[in-house]
Amino acid sequence: MATAHSRSAARIMISPAVILLLGWMLIPLSMTLYFSFLRYNLLMPGTHDWAGFLNYRFFLTDPAFFAALKNTLILVGGVLAITIVGGVLLAILLDQPMWGQGIVRILVIAPFFVMPTVGALVWKNMFMNPVNGLFASLAKGIGMQPFDFLGEAPLASIILMVAWQWLPFATLILLTALQSLDSDQLEAAEMDGAGPLSRFFHIMLPHLARAITVVVLIQTIFLLSVFAEILVTTNGGPGYATTNITYLVYAQSLLQFDVGGGSAGGIVAVILANIVAIFLMRMIGKNLDI
């Protein structure tokens, strides 16, 4: 269905989107790249000296960078582990016959729709607060010392909050994938004498492999950019204990006004995200038959 007429119409109709996205990607990104080679601090107006790779050297040798890189990896890895394992189990559970399945599903999905700032503040104050939080009350109730979650185990606490928000996403996608599994296959396996465990490992898990990969990749993209949860709970602290790359770049550029250093950090973040993105795009691209 393509005539020269419709093809030229198509080109015109797609161009606003292409131009906007091209502008959105190229202009700021090239500015970031340019800034990253400058000695440029908003507190010292007028200085835009060429700095070469100085910013990168500072950023990449700063102990804060290593702390942030480590935290980023732990945060992403921790949340992925919890959400994938929990998601697979929950998806299988929700796929079982039961009463009130629709309502349970709604309950499980809810956290995904809670805005990150709300989720983080609720967890921080109402649950994890060592004096007034619900966990503290519970601990006191059974005669234990309240635990100062954000003080003693700040990163783990943030992982818990973020995992709570993303578990529904993983569950929902894995459940959708699971429901597309032909029940004949499972029944055939049952007829062939496969027990529940071997059915899980030989039929369900391979069927879910693709969905799990998609979940891992998409979550990674979003998890690399976790920001609000850190901002409203710990501000990256104590020390650098909960600073991830995103937060570090934010702090450097908008709190310390070091545009050059922040930009170098931004470019590093882009490179890290790209490594993940390439795999994700391969997967999606393979699935796209035009």
């Binding site: 700021p28 990104l29 500015m31 973040a269 890290l272 995200a273 795009m281």
Partner: peptide, 14 residues
């Protein structure tokens, strides 16, 4: 799709 993968901090300053 790739523009969606761009981490926001990469373009925060500009």
């Amino acid at each position: 799709l790739s523009t969606k993968m761009l981490p926001p901090v990469g373009v925060l300053i500009p």
